[in-house]
Design a protein around this nucleic acid. Sequence first.
DNA 1: GTAGGGTTAG
Length: 672
Amino acid sequence: MSTSTTTTNLPHHIKPKEVSAESTASTSKLSQKTILHILNTKCTTSLQHLKQAHGVALRSGHFQDHYVAGAIVKCYASQHFSNFGFALKVFDSVWRPNVFVWNIVIKGCLENNEALSCISYYCKMVAMNARPNKFTYSILFKACTLVQAVEEALQIHAHVVKNQFGEDGHIRSAGIQMYASFGLVEEARRMLDEAVESNDVICSNAMIDGYMKCGDVEAAKELFEKHMPSKNIGSWNAMVSGLARCGMLKEARELFDGMSEKDEISWSAMVDGYIKGGCHKEALEIFNEMQKENLLSPRKFILSSVLAACANVGAVDQGKWVHAYIKRNTIQLDAVLGAALLDMYAKCGRLDMAWEVFENIKQKQISTWNAMIGGLAMHGRADDAIELFSKMQRSKLEPNGVTFLNVLNACAHSGFVDKGLNFFSSMKKFYGIEPEVEHYGCMVDMFGRAGQLEEAEQLINSMPIKPNAAVWGALLGACRIHGNVEMGERVGRILLELEPQNSGRYALLSNIYAKAGRWDDVEKVRMLMKERGVKTSPGISMVDIGGLVHEFKVGEGSHPQMKEVYLMLETIIEKLQMEGYSPNSSQVLFDIAEEEKETALQYHSEKLAIAFGVLNTKPGTTIRVTKNLRTCEDCHSTIKIFSKVYERDIIVRDRMRYHHFRNGRCSCKDFW
DNA sequence: GTAGGGTTAG
């Protein structure tokens, strides 16, 4: 193949830049070394330079030099240009690529999310008698990990052994990770043990991580404690993050506290562990501690974790601090961090700020739009969510499954059944997105809220995939709203089998019976819970005042201002009663998750949080409360009246959704 | 003479 045929293969729009007549004379004289230098310095970020250098290489005849060809393919394959297909075309024009050029294209496949192609290029390579080297195999192991290609991995491993690369540390650590990701933890261990004499700390770290990911904490501990004479910070980090991920937060914390040196990954592992375990307050506390140590400047990974924690506890002031920090340190607001930031504002009830962040993100990606649409949906602003969805389509971005989840959610919460149905059917028809179980859950929720319980049940029965507990849960919730005891009983029974340890399901079923006055059945549910040893989660409400998150639990007096809070709450209730409010918790609602503990002086946590808010803010200030469970009907109606009598806005985010109380009404229109 | 490993990825 000659260089001139190479150019004709190239698609027109990206053709290497023609070199003008006068410059040809000089550029064609450029040495291979000079061209390489230009490629390695100027062409990694500038497509214009790259095309020019490509053209020069072709005309000067240096293109077929493997050093040059390799560098050119590598540049085109860079994610910076997001046109990997073209890199492959250029690769095809390389005459008998050597192992280096092959490795570049195989690695390019991996980096451009085409891991399967790694394997097929490897096959081509072998077929063309190019000898793979140790670099080839560590890339291939990673590719197999990514696509979970077990069969291929075993064959490739056999090639590694045959070609005597089994002793290479890079290949070994990639192999350990790979086998652990397949769940073949013994196979991974065998690879590690073959290297007894080399005692490679990085391979051992990979093994610790592998054990942890396979849930074998004991094996990880044993390796860490007994068989690793030399450790580095990565070994400690692997242990801390593994323990934290497995929910063993206390042990993780002990190990973490004992570290002589910590890096951002150590802190991040603890923050993430706390978040995954639902301990958002602890997550924020440890982040504050990190600030105090003042040794590290947090970067985007940990910042987005912290934002997620802020979002979950409603710590808008700390969230704002993170926002200011990002601005002050000109940290780039990429898709992940941007979405975390606007999600935080939306979840803390500050849609205005979420919107501002959204508009300021220059390079909006699909996740950016999804976060904003989700924020609007969460606040019951279905019209705005749908409008934003159309706007996104106009900007030529393809929606994904998450987009539809958010749009459907918006429809469900506003009773837009017809619109929701349209979106649902267009998913597959126009976008080729197969609805997943979550989408069905949304649809069931939508029918259910709108009172179309039969349709909801029909949809479940006609689902092509197995309905999960969330889908049935949506239907059970609808049965409660619409007081359908017959269906509720049926669905409840299915759910109690599916999730025997989920206290919320028992509570919902019990509420349905209570609403129908079937106290015997309420009692039966309660007994069943006791028998099965189901743990209830206590209601916790959090309120963010002056940058500090205050936590209130039912029947717990640990807050320093507890006495005042109770007194204030008594005063409030008295005042509301004079305005016609009467508590209805004993007859209508039976929230066993909390109710068991409720006596005359033990109010639900959201009431305590609001009383605390009244004590500590000026009249007229909006009080924002975040609750871990679904709010009960009594609290809901109390807060409605409260918002009118006290002329205050109250925003409560419960487990299900947002409630914006104003002037005696709630934004959820009493559906939640 | 060209290039890699582990621990976070919300």
